[in-house]
């Protein structure tokens, strides 16, 4: 049984169908990257998986539990899914350390000292421990994203969702973040990542899901999709990117 099983997921906004029967699996320890043209529904897909957006129909099973069931304990399931946003989404009124410990203290009911120890461990993993007392406004984009990843990791999630983790960063900072995500990939952290960044996709993915007009057009290893794919849409997309 896969950790995440997505079946025939549909999301419509009014008359516009953004996701049109998306189906895929994500195994424990696996990393998949979702790519596709702008507006193909990549971010909406990620948001539907932890119900930040309500799917119109279809099924999302996470760790054997139906996320879309009316009786699903969505908040409990969300705690098992680390979500890293494009714009970092750090809590501006809290220090770096408090950003990471907040959910540990409030949701996991961890004693403050233990939460701090855990947070510092994750911050050190992201080379951000020395910024523990800084506020988000004083951090660079790359530093903010590293804190956001530490915040997600601190909850010991079963899977990490990344929504365009490098798109708000300049090339140098983006490479730093790619290196860190690659480190997680090599540690077999389960990752589902939406990105436009081909460099990121190549370095962290077991396979790429190519989404087009709300449908999975292909799912394959990066090297197979990147080198002259038979599908002209895919060939054209990666041709433009590389």
């Amino acid at each position: 049984m896969a950790l995440l099983e997505v079946r025939n997921l549909v999301k419509t906004f009014g008359t516009k169908t953004v996701l049109d029967g998306v189906t895929f699996d994500l195994e424990e320890g696996q990393t998949k990257v979702i790519m596709g043209p702008s507006g193909c529904g990549k971010s909406t897909l990620l948001r539907c998986l932890n119900r930040l957006e309500e799917p119109t129909s279809g099924s999302v099973r996470f760790d054997g539990k139906e996320m879309t069931a009316p009786t699903a304990d969505v908040r409990a399931l969300r705690q098992l899914i680390g979500f890293v946003f494009q714009n970092f989404a750090l809590y501006r009124h809290l220090t770096v350390l408090d950003n990471v410990t907040l959910a540990l203290r409030q949701l996991k009911k961890m004693p403050a000292a233990l939460a701090e120890e855990r947070a510092l461990h994750e911050l050190a993993r992201m080379d951000m421990a020395e910024k523990r007392d800084a506020y988000p406004a004083s951090l660079s984009g790359g530093q903010s994203q590293r804190v956001a990843i530490a915040r997600a990791l601190a909850m010991e999630p079963r899977v990490l969702f990344f929504d365009e983790p490098t798109s708000a960063l300049d090339p140098v900072m983006a490479r730093e973040v790619v290196t860190l995500i690659n480190r997680l990939y090599l540690e077999n952290v389960t990752i589902l990542c939406v990105t436009h960044d081909l460099y990121l996709a190549q370095y962290i993915s077991d396979s790429i899901i190519f989404l087009d007009q709300g449908k999975v057009r292909a799912e394959d290893k990066a090297e197979n999709l990147l080198s002259g794919h038979a599908d002209p849409v895919i060939a054209s997309f990666f041709g433009r990117k590389s």
Binding site: L52, R78, I81, H93, A103, Q106
Partner: peptide, 26 residues
């Protein structure tokens, strides 16, 4: 920033917790 509130929701916080821990202090 709407994304901060969304991040709190994605972390598993309830509406009341988001208000108390993120919205009200800001």
């Amino acid at each position: 920033l709407p994304t901060e509130l969304e991040a709190a929701k994605a972390q598993g916080f309830s509406r009341g917790q988001i208000f108390r821990l993120v919205t009200a202090p800001q």
